[in-house]
C-alpha cells in the first residue's frame, strides 16, 4: 500500500439545504506538495476544516496520518487558516513560540526555533516588535511561520499567498519547497494557478463542492489538447488532413479584416510535432503571418474545467 498521509473517502458536508462538499475522495502521498484549487465558494475551506476535525463530515471517512481524527495527531499537523489574524499585543517571536508550544514543543526549543525561522525568512529585525506594528503582509508571513514552527509532518495552508507582494510570494514558495525537501507534506489551497503550476506535484480541483480533477500537473495539462494558432491570407486546406491534427476551428469566420487575414486554431495530438506542421505550411506555400504553439497553462485548464461554474457563481 502506498504511504498516504491523508485519505478522504466519499466525504460530504451539508449546511441545511446547501451542500458545501459533495462526495469527495482523494489521497495524498507522503512528501508531496499538493494543491487545492477551485473557485471561490467551491468548498476548499470546508474540506480543510473537515480534514482538521474542526467540522465533522455528514458522511464519508477521513484518515489522517493513520488516525480517524486530526485531533489525535494535531501535534504533527501545521495549519494556517484562510482568514489571517494574530494577537495584536504579542511580540513576533513570542507568538511563533506560543503556537509551537501549543503543538507540544518545549518552551526553550520553541523560542530558539522562532528566532531561527525569523532569521531565515527575513524577519529578524521584527522579532521583538509587536504584531500590531507589522504590515498585513509581514503579519501573514509571521502567521505562516507560527503554523510550521514545530516541523509538522503535514502542513495545511489555506490561501497562503493572498495578500502577499511578489517578493514575499517567492519567499513563501521557497519555504514550501524547503519543507518538501525536508520530507514534510504540504497541502495548500489557492486560486492563483501560477503558484500551483510552479510548486505542486499533484493537485485537486473542486467546484461547487464536487471533485473535478485529481492528479499530477502533467495529467491536468493533458486535459486540454495542445493548440497551434495560425494566421494567413488565404486557405490552409493542404495541411488540414495532416496526421496528428485532431481538429481545426476557424476563428471569426466570415469576418476577415481589411487585408483578408484569417485565423485558425489547430488542436493537435499530444505526441504530434508542431515542427512538422510548420514545415508542411512552407512546402505548400501558405503565407503565414503568425504561427503560435503554446502549452496549455493550468489557468486554461482551470477555466476549461470550472469556467462555466465560476461565471455562474459570479452572476448569481
Amino acid at each position: 500500500m502506498q504511504d498516504n498521509v491523508l485519505e478522504l473517502t466519499r466525504v460530504s458536508k451539508r449546511y441545511g439545504a446547501f451542500t458545501a462538499v459533495d462526495d469527495i475522495s482523494f489521497a495524498i502521498p507522503r512528501g508531496t506538495i499538493y494543491g487545492f484549487l477551485g473557485p471561490n465558494g467551491a468548498g476548499k475551506t470546508t474540506t480543510i476544516r473537515m480534514i482538521l476535525d474542526i467540522l465533522r463530515p455528514d458522511s464519508g471517512s477521513i484518515n489522517i496520518l493513520g488516525e480517524t481524527s486530526a485531533l489525535n495527531v494535531r501535534q504533527r499537523i501545521g495549519y494556517l487558516p484562510e482568514e489571517k489574524g494574530l494577537y495584536k499585543k504579542m511580540k513576533v517571536w513570542a507568538i511563533i513560540s506560543y503556537f509551537a508550544t501549543l503543538k507540544g514543543m518545549d518552551k526553550r526549543a520553541a523560542k530558539t526555533r522562532a528566532f531561527e525561522l525569523l532569521e531565515t525568512y527575513g524577519l529578524k529585525d521584527y522579532a521583538e516588535a509587536k504584531v500590531e506594528s507589522l504590515s498585513k503582509g509581514m503579519g501573514q508571513k509571521v502567521q505562516v511561520l507560527s503554523a510550521v514552527a514545530h516541523r509538522p509532518e503535514l502542513v495545511i495552508l489555506d490561501e497562503p499567498f493572498s495578500g502577499l507582494d511578489p517578493v514575499n510570494q517567492e519567499v513563501l514558495e521557497q519555504l514550501i519547497n524547503d519543507m518538501a525537501t525536508a520530507g514534510q507534506t504540504v497541502i495548500f489551497s489557492t486560486h492563483i494557478m501560477q503558484h500551483a503550476e510552479r510548486l505542486c506535484d499533484r493537485m485537486l480541483l473542486i467546484a461547487k463542492g464536487r471533485k473535478i480533477f485529481d492528479g499530477t500537473i502533467t495529467d491536468a495539462r493533458a486535459i486540454i489538447p495542445r493548440r497551434v494558432i495560425l494566421e494567413c491570407q488565404g486557405d490552409i486546406s493542404p495541411i488540414m488532413k495532416m496526421e496528428g491534427i485532431l481538429g481545426v476551428i476557424e476563428k471569426n469566420v466570415g469576418n476577415t479584416d481589411t487585408n483578408g487575414t484569417r485565423q485558425w486554431e489547430l488542436q493537435i495530438h499530444e505526441q504530434a510535432n508542431p515542427q512538422l506542421i510548420l514545415q508542411r505550411c512552407f512546402e505548400n506555400g501558405i503565407p503565414l503571418s503568425r504561427f503560435d504553439y503554446t502549452q496549455p497553462s493550468l489557468h486554461d485548464v482551470f477555466v476549461q474545467l470550472v469556467g462555466n461554474d465560476a461565471r455562474e457563481h459570479h452572476f448569481r
Binding site: Y79, L80, P81, G85, L86, Y87, L102, K103, A147
Partner: peptide, 17 residues
Amino acid sequence: IEEKSNRIIEVLLASVT
C-alpha cells in the same frame, strides 16, 4: 471576541480542544 474576530480561534482549535 478578539480571538473570534481575528480568526485566531481556528488556529487554536487546530492545536487544542
